[in-house]
Design a protein around this nucleic acid. Structure first.
Length: 427
DNA sequence: CTATAACTCTCAA
DNA sequence: CTAACGTTGAGAGTTATAG
């Protein structure tokens, strides 16, 4: 009998920012997406103001001023480091754990069924609060989907005390009553589209979905939703994924701080995105078999002409060599670039990835040369790791990127950079 | 006609 | 002062294409 706990950090990005500036306790805080675009995290105070997730920041500025909302650009280094620390603490509670996202982990608690699981959950909560200063919620149940739902209940304080919710000890009648109170859209795997379709069919609550006919759900929707339904019934269909498999595709895309009109600037951007993607590729020791490049204008602007295009080029020999990938990417870019548009975003994707060890070398490849190039790339990665990204780069990439995304509200990298320590602490 | 590739849709954080 | 709206990845299902 499997038992899962889902541990989820509350308002993770916003909480990380608050953590390093005590003046911000009780202050409404939002964290913005890349380019200071949309709200991607809200502190409790902001949620209380009724501000929804995903609003564009420029639409919120007036409200923000009125209520004294403090905004931060996303500081991924900081969040990733805090996330690692959370996972490290969680590993103290179980040997089997799946890091599901930057702020969520599934814990296998099947070996702890002799314990009071709710109490164990409280202990987890306590320790992360005391050791790291972050608040988490814990949901416990016999399937991942139910554990997710239990976590939702823990956040709302539905069953039992706030912060922990254990479905394994709830009576069937209580469970039924609880599920009848929750909208079906809260279920993991039920997004906007499926929620609307379910509603139309009269399936409005989680209970409705649980009691629906599995065959019908499968035929009208998919095998995925059928699995979700079975998970809601307590039949565990999703295992803990402890080992993170290699990526099948690697992407790097970003919108620009200012529009780009000319090809050279686009080349600069695309080259730097490829360099970044290639680093990730080498980090997992893979080679790419094809490369996709896309560019597009702002889909939201109404008066300016719109254009978007993409192209995928196969690579003659699978490679992880930044220079080859950039060469290929620039050719691709030239083929889709059209003059006279205000480009707002570009991106690249490395596809058809295969492990370096498995590659079949071309009959005509010079293996000695390939080895030297691998070595060169490895050296480049080490230098860039030590001295900062872009220290060593291909020549099309400029040192300065005028198109770089906006990050007007950036906090310090408090935990990963000495220079990030605020001066006020030194006083 | 079948097997595979390519593309589309949906979801998640 | 104005204009301004994220990124990355997976899986399933459907359609197109090759042999």
């Amino acid at each position: 009998m499997p038992v899962f706990a889902l541990v989820d950090c509350n308002n993770f990005y916003a909480s990380c920012e608050k953590l390093f500036d005590p003046r911000l306790v009780d202050t409404p805080v939002v964290v913005l997406s890349n380019n200071d675009g949309c709200v991607v995290a809200r502190s409790a105070e902001v949620k209380a103001l009724g501000i929804p997730m995903g609003v564009p920041w420029f639409k919120l500025k007036d409200t923000a001023k009125r209520y004294g909302i403090v905004a931060f650009s996303s500081n991924y280094e900081l969040y990733a480091d805090m996330s690692d620390r959370v996972v490290e603490v969680l590993r103290g509670f179980t040997p089997n754990l799946e890091v599901y996202s930057i702020d969520e982990s599934f814990l296998d608690l099947s070996g702890f069924m002799h314990l009071d699981l709710a109490a164990y959950g409280s202990e987890i909560r306590q320790r992360i609060q005391v050791w790291l200063g972050l608040a988490v919620c814990v949901g416990i149940a016999g399937s991942k989907t139910l554990a997710k739902l239990a976590n939702h209940c823990a956040k709302k304080g539905y069953a039992g005390q706030f912060g922990v919710c254990d479905f394994t000890t709830i009576s069937p009648a209580e469970m039924t009553a609880l599920l009848a109170r929750i909208e079906v859209g809260e279920v993991w795997g039920v997004g906007r589209k499926i929620h609307a379709r379910l509603q139309e069919m009269g399936i409005k609550t989680v209970l409705d979905l649980r009691e629906a006919d599995a065959e019908m759900i499968r035929s009208r929707f998919s095998v995925v939703l059928e699995r979700t339904l079975r998970e809601l019934r307590g039949i565990s269909c999703l295992d803990l994924d402890e080992v993170v498999p290699d990526k099948q595709q690697i992407m790097c895309s970003r919108s620009f701080g200012q529009y780009i009109y000319r090809l050279p600037e686009l080349e600069d951007a695309v080259a730097s995105y490829i360099a970044r993607a290639a680093e990730k590729l080498r980090a997992q020791d893979s080679l790419a078999g094809a490369l996709m490049v896309f560019i597009r204008t702002n889909p939201f602007s109404e008066n300016e002409p719109k254009y978007q295009n993409s192209i995928t080029l196969p690579l003659p020999d699978p490679t992880a060599d930044t220079r080859i990938l950039v060469q290929c990417g620039l050719q691709a870019l030239k083929r889709i670039y059209r003059q006279g548009y205000a480009y707002q975003k570009a991106g690249v994707m490395l596809c058809n990835l295969c492990p370096h060890s498995m590659v079949q070398t071309s009959l005509f490849a010079d293996s000695g040369n390939t080895l030297r190039n691998d070595h060169l790339m490895a050296t480049m990665d080490r230098i860039n790791q030590k001295w900062g990204r872009g220290m060593l780069r291909v020549a099309v990439e400029r040192a300065q990127h005028p198109w770089q995304m906006k990050r007007g509200h950036m906090s310090s990298r408090y935990t990963t950079d000495w220079a990030g320590l605020p001066k006020v602490w030194a006083k």
